[in-house]
Write a protein that binds this DNA or RNA. Structure first.
Lengths: 341, 341
DNA sequence: ATGAAAGCGCTAACAT
DNA sequence: ATGTTAGCGCTTTCAT
């Protein structure tokens, strides 16, 4: 990119009348103490006047630190991830790191390749936001000592730091809200039970129902094939066709909740009059829907920021034991929930 | 990141009984022809068996090519950008490049810093998706020979390749649709007229109105302060309060159109019965709104992909004259438009 | 406090 | 077709 040959450390050193090593020490905040204060000042001034910019590639080669970390996400186009990535970047950048994003499309092969590619790009660590439950590749990387942190999923077995929303409490918030409105038979359209998130939320749902003494009917919990609107619609139809009896549903995420909207139009019943619906995530624009969707808000950007902090810690101190963080959730009550009729 | 010391080219060369230079030539597709086919095969096999992965940092240092490009966007959290970034990455990755994203938050200072930071990270080029019209910094970079391409805005004056949606045709699509429904007095809630996009669409609107012989009333075009729902609502209120007479509005973007929804609720008139509204961009979930928003769909991912291709071209052949591309748009007719009542 | 020297891993003239 | 040599720009022993 440098069109006018950019000055090198040598140039600075020569112009300042010192050895490149001295210039390096002067310019580097960490080693500046080793050099005479006056010399340091002079070198710095010369560097500025020359418009010197250290070449991070050369530094990386020497120090074996790339200053980059890999961000492994399923699909940036999924509205869940942009705020997470933004939160990550906001922490990485002031720390002098940058993030390399790869999209896996939830394809295990692609994921393997992408992670391979990140490794060969010498990333110093990984933030992994893909949600599959079983993950030999990550376990192996972890064994090999690659610093990493998991986002949105608790690692099973492996001792890897993770940032997750406090799903259980989120589900409780939803159930409490519905119970307070007077609902007793509440269904759960869970996300795929092969994902850690889907499983955690489904289990939390059962516990919440039991703990509150509501009607605990296993037939009211059904897993969706994917986290999509279609899958949500399909699951609700299945429940309805089985003649299941319920007045509210807690959806595994917002998209699944939207599927409920579709079915309500399709089958001619009203939300929230005939069926209350609660989502999960608080995606953008949910407040614009008719009815506006009541949902559990997840602080995605904060999750990203925390993840980045944890990763930087792990890079700086690889020995430190894995610390995991659960972030509190809040319920956003909008128009899709009401007392049962 | 390498926990078990990763093998270097030297290791491969030794194991294969050749000189590192030969190994390099054998491993590099471009120079493989220079080496005996058998030797090449042997080297490659040894490299594989050792799990050799070339160190791109070392290569970059030597070749003075970082293999990275900078992606300058206002805010990844704005739903416009994820698909663009995705399109970019999808093209960059197979080409062996990766993108470094920076968010400027539309703050000129931050933008300057971020671009500085990208430069010092030795990016080989820039994809710029920020929309301010006047931009001395970019002009300067361009003069300095930094390969770059502009996304979503036509550069004024400077000879930089750009990828833009065909805004004018998009506006025409919207106006044609409304005219066909029978509307003759159509308002335009333009985006900020200080942005190239806002200006282009506003101009296209006036022409479209005139060309079709509709009521060409300058009072029906009003610029919003920003591309937001609030600004859209404010602009519509202003128009209404002035007693302007119109039956449909073409909004500068979807958010502005959403502002019209708010005002319709607030003032108790119905969309589309009393006012038809057309958006621009086709953000996610517009089909879930009540009424579902009729809008001009922009192929964001394609725009990103094209931008990346143009940038790779510009990097490969800096001399090539700036080629600009306008991508065709389509109208998505949903429920927010109807014949005037 | 500073200089000398070496080398990170790779590629590209230039020999042979 | 392969080896030799040098060097990208920086940091880091090791001397002095």
């Amino acid at each position: 990119m440098p069109p006018v040959q950019t000055p090198t450390l040598r140039d600075v050193a020569e112009a300042a009348g010192v050895h490149p090593a001295t210039a390096s020490r002067a310019l580097n905040p960490g080693t500046r103490g080793l050099v005479n204060a006056d010399t340091a000042r002079r070198v710095i001034k010369v560097a500025e006047s020359l418009g010197y910019r250290p070449n991070p590639i050369a530094r990386s080669l020497k120090t074996a630190k790339s200053g980059t970390v890999g961000l492994v996400i399923p699909d940036l186009t999924n509205p869940l991830f942009p705020p997470i990535v933004r939160g990550i970047e906001d922490v990485l950048e002031p720390a002098g790191y940058s993030g390399l994003i790869v999209n896996t499309d939830n394809d295990p092969n692609r994921e393997r390749q992408q992670i391979e590619s990140l490794r060969s790009r010498q990333v110093e660590g990984l933030i992994v936001a893909t949600a599959r439950l079983d993950h030999p590749l990550l376990a192996q990387l972890h064994r090999e000592g690659v610093p990493m942190v998991m986002v949105n999923r608790r690692p099973d077995g492996v001792d890897v730091p993770s940032i997750t929303p406090d799903d259980a409490t989120g589900i409780e918030l939803a159930v409490d809200h519905l119970a307070a409105l007077g609902h007793r038979r509440i269904a759960h359209l869970a996300g795929p039970l092969s994902t850690s998130t889907g499983l955690v939320r489904a289990r939390a749902f059962r516990s919440a129902i039991r703990d509150r003494g509501l009607d605990d009917d296993p037939a009211l919990v059904i897993g969706c094939d994917s986290w999509t609107e279609d899958a949500g619609a399909g699951a609700l139809r299945t429940l309805l066709d089985r003649g299941a009896d319920f007045t509210a549903v807690v959806a595994g995420n917002d998209l699944i909740a939207l599927g409920c909207y579709d079915v309500s139009t399709e089958r001619g019943f009203d939300c929230p009059t005939d069926l209350s619906v609660v989502g999960f995530n608080d995606m953008p624009f949910l407040d614009k829907l008719r009815p506006p969707l009541t949902t559990v808000a997840v602080p995605h950007q904060l999750i990203g920021a925390e993840a980045a902090r944890l990763l930087l810690d792990a890079i700086a101190e690889p020995a430190r034991p894995a610390r995991s963080v659960q972030l509190p959730l809040t319920l956003v009550v909008r128009g899709s929930t009401a007392a049962p009729s």
